[in-house]
Design a protein around this nucleic acid. Structure first.
Lengths: 122, 122
DNA sequence: CATAACGGTATCCTTTTTGACACTATGTGC
DNA sequence: GCACATAGTGTCAAAAAGGATACCGTTATG
């Protein structure tokens, strides 16, 4: 996004929509949260789910969400290191919104993607 | 946003969340959509609601949403010009998601704002 | 004549975000 | 000794997003 650290919304009635968006905006946050909705995960586990994310980006996004209180980060003193990421209580309250977005996406994504199933030649 | 014109999601299960976010991401889109949910509006009418948006940004955001099929743009051949913006049918289907976001924001925004009411020094 | 309202464009510039790539530390298996 | 897995960090560069400012044409109004 784009407005993430720029707090200070202009606070017309839609302001709270912006506030919510400002937290889940970021190229990977939506997906990450969605995966964590299912269960806590380790760093590389998330990474494999995302496939094209770089380490640095994943770290950044996770750190921001941790700073925003949406997720928790638990380090286990082991070797090799183990770090678990999980939704916080606050993060869990996003569930309805995330589901609403996913529902919408599932219904309408075909309008924006190349519709690969229509390309089945032969 | 940030991922807006970068189509091609990595399409793990959370992909549709990203798809949805990619459309309402943009510094003003959330608020604009929210206002249009109430009723169609003219350009300057929206502008006044947003107060701090520049003409260029408003134009950009409206044009992108029009291109994405979320809103419609109707020009009336009048002088002075009149242009109405309204939600399209597709845009209207975002209502549940927008409301979910607003609800979340209303409940939790106090956690992220400077809490101005605690600053009341005489 | 000057000004304001309308709905924009065109240019230029700055900030933010994202990506590439190399590098770290520790311990295990070969 | 060498590579691999873990979970990162640091630096630099590119791309995208956003903002400031000035300008356009028309008509009504003072």
């Amino acid at each position: 996004m784009t407005r993430r650290r720029t707090h200070g919304f202009d606070c017309a009635p839609g302001c709270s929509v912006e506030a919510a968006l400002s937290l889940i905006d970021g190229k990977w946050k939506g997906v990450i949260l969605f995966h964590l909705l299912e269960r806590p995960m380790r760093f590389n586990e998330i990474r494999r789910k995302l496939a094209t994310v770089t380490q640095r980006m994943l770290t950044t996004q996770l750190r921001e969400m941790e700073a925003d209180g949406l997720i928790t980060r638990t380090v286990f003193a082991q070797v090799p290191p183990r770090v678990d990421y999980a939704l916080s209580d606050l993060g869990r309250t996003l569930e309805p919104a995330l589901h609403a977005l996913k529902t919408w996406g599932d219904s309408n994504m075909h309008l924006f993607s190349p519709a690969p199933d229509t390309l089945n030649a032969s």
